[in-house]
Simulated scan of single mutants.
Amino acid sequence: MNTSETQAVQARYARRDNSADAQRYSLYANAAALQAQQERLRAMARLWCAHGWTDLSGRTLLEVGCGSGGNLLDLLRLGATPTQLTGIELLPERAAAARAVLPGGVTVLEGDACAAPIADASQQAVLAFTVFSSLLDPAYRQQFARTLWRWVAPGGGVLVYDFVVNNPHNPDVRKLPLSELRALFPCARLQSRRLTLAPPVARRLPTGLIAPASLLLHPLRTHRLTWAVKPLTPP
């Protein structure tokens, strides 16, 4: 556990304007955010179906950096079992918000993920959505990746959704290129695809044009969804 990096992450989130973020990422008020979420869910379902998972029922699934619980709710809608679902959140107020909206069977842990009491090889999928990009210390990124990989059962994987380009307006995040993902999970078999039309572009488009524009303007996709699969037997 790197206490200094954990404190730095907390400070970066505290600098953000939460009210502005709420509008920017609201699925109700922002058509671009809704399109990005739906596109990501379809891509997740395709990846897992191709992996041989016909459903999510009974599967042990964990999200690191679960925020106020939005992605965990999406997993429930996709068929995940509440008692097999875990979220970990660093910020106490976000963890409390997640507990308020999620079913009682879902476990929400608070604190540094690298210190969380998760058993080795206990999870079939570990999700980290826009988490690595908030970890600016390369050594802590490596420690974080090793922790997630340790939790994953053989045949399962780590699902990463994150920036592949830097945001010139936000120095508190750093891109996560595919080459670095390969280095962070050297034993994994990676399946990856670019997603999410650049939000500043998508927010300026009429609602009906966002989805086709995302398909056509592939170079303007700013994120990557990667399924890093752990081999059934050690290499």
Rank of each mutant, 00 (worst) to 15 (best):
D21G: 00
A113N: 03
E93N: 12
A33Y: 08
I88A: 09
A22V: 02
L62F: 00
D55V: 08
L62C: 14
T60D: 08
Q124L: 06
G52N: 06
A22R: 03
R15Q: 13
S19K: 14
R42I: 05
A50K: 07
A121P: 10
D55Y: 03
L90R: 14
E39Q: 11
A20R: 15
E89Q: 08
A33L: 06
A36K: 00
V108A: 01
Y28I: 01
V106C: 01
T83D: 08
S19W: 13
E89C: 11
P92A: 05
M44Q: 00
A116Y: 08
P117S: 13
Y25R: 01
T107W: 07
S19A: 15
P103V: 14
R24I: 04
L78A: 15
L91C: 13
A115W: 08
L76T: 07
I88C: 14
L78G: 09
N30Y: 03
Q124R: 08
R42C: 05
V64I: 15
A36N: 00
W53Q: 07
L47G: 01
R40E: 04
L76H: 09
N30P: 03
A121V: 09
T54F: 01
S19L: 15
G52D: 10
E110T: 15
L27A: 02
A98M: 04
S26C: 09
W48S: 02
A33R: 07
V101F: 05
G58P: 05
T83G: 05
A43F: 04
L85D: 00
T81Y: 02
G87W: 08
E89W: 08
A119Y: 01
L75N: 02
L75E: 07
G52T: 10
G105E: 15
A96D: 05
S68D: 13
Q84N: 11
A45W: 12
D21H: 10
T86W: 05
C114L: 15
L72A: 00
N18C: 08
R94D: 06
T54G: 12
